[in-house]
Computed example of a mutant assay.
Amino acid sequence: MTQDNVRVAPAWDRPDPQVLQRFREHSVANLGDALDRLNIVDGGISPVWHGAKAVGTALPVLTVAGDNKAVIAALDHIRPGDILVINAFGYDGRAIVGDNLAQRFDVFGAVGAVVDGYVRDGAIIEKLGVPV
């Protein structure tokens, strides 16, 4: 589906919540070792605030570097327990996510976000308690 120049993939089945619960019981390092480091996040991507962590279903978002229009469109597709996984191609010339979007993620039911791009308002996002 295309809306305002943003393509949206059809819905998919999320994993069983019991599977996610089993992931919560282990550290990221142990999971990474057990999976032979497959699909481990780039070491340059780190939490905006110390202690931020989340387990959920990935809601992938591909956006043009420096443009968060697709991120805003993704708000309509969040289901409780999702983690937005935003590929902004590592662009750091303009923020893709700030406190406003982080708060909206939380209100829409997302449990956090992983962003390959610039994130601003880290202190406010920490106060909100949204893992980014």
Rank of each mutant, 00 (worst) to 15 (best):
A88Y: 03
A29Q: 13
L31T: 13
I40F: 04
G44E: 10
V85R: 00
R94H: 14
L128R: 06
V111I: 15
V8P: 05
L75C: 09
H50G: 03
L101V: 15
G66H: 04
A52P: 03
L35M: 12
I125H: 07
K127P: 03
V6M: 09
I124H: 00
V85Q: 00
F105Y: 02
G117N: 02
K127N: 11
V55M: 03
N68F: 08
H77Q: 06
I45W: 02
D92V: 11
D13R: 15
V111G: 14
D82A: 13
L38V: 07
D106G: 04
L75D: 06
P15Q: 02
P60D: 04
I83P: 01
V48H: 00
V114Y: 05
A110W: 08
V130W: 01
F89Q: 10
A54N: 09
D16P: 11
D4W: 11
N68A: 15
V85T: 04
Q18Y: 00
I72H: 08
L128Y: 03
N30R: 02
R37C: 01
V19W: 13
R24M: 11
V132E: 00
G109V: 13
I78L: 12
G117F: 00
Q18H: 10
L84W: 03
G98D: 13
Q21M: 06
F105L: 10
L35K: 02
L84V: 06
V130Q: 01
Q3C: 09
R37P: 01
N30P: 00
E126C: 09
P15Y: 03
L101M: 11
A9Y: 07
G117Q: 06
D99I: 05
K69R: 14
L59I: 12
A58T: 12
V64G: 11
N68M: 10
R37H: 05
T63R: 12
A95R: 02
G122E: 12
L62R: 14
N100L: 10
V85W: 00
S46G: 01
I45G: 00
T63N: 06
V114W: 04
P17F: 03
N87F: 08
A34Y: 06
R22E: 14
H26M: 07
Q18E: 00
I40L: 11
A11W: 07
Q103N: 15
R14D: 03
D116E: 13
T63S: 08
L31G: 02
A11S: 12
A9H: 04
A70I: 11
H26K: 13
V41Q: 07
K127C: 08
V107I: 13
N39T: 01
G112F: 04
P15C: 02
I40N: 05
L59W: 11
D92Q: 13
H77F: 14
P80W: 11
Q21L: 12
G129L: 04
V28Q: 05
A58Q: 06
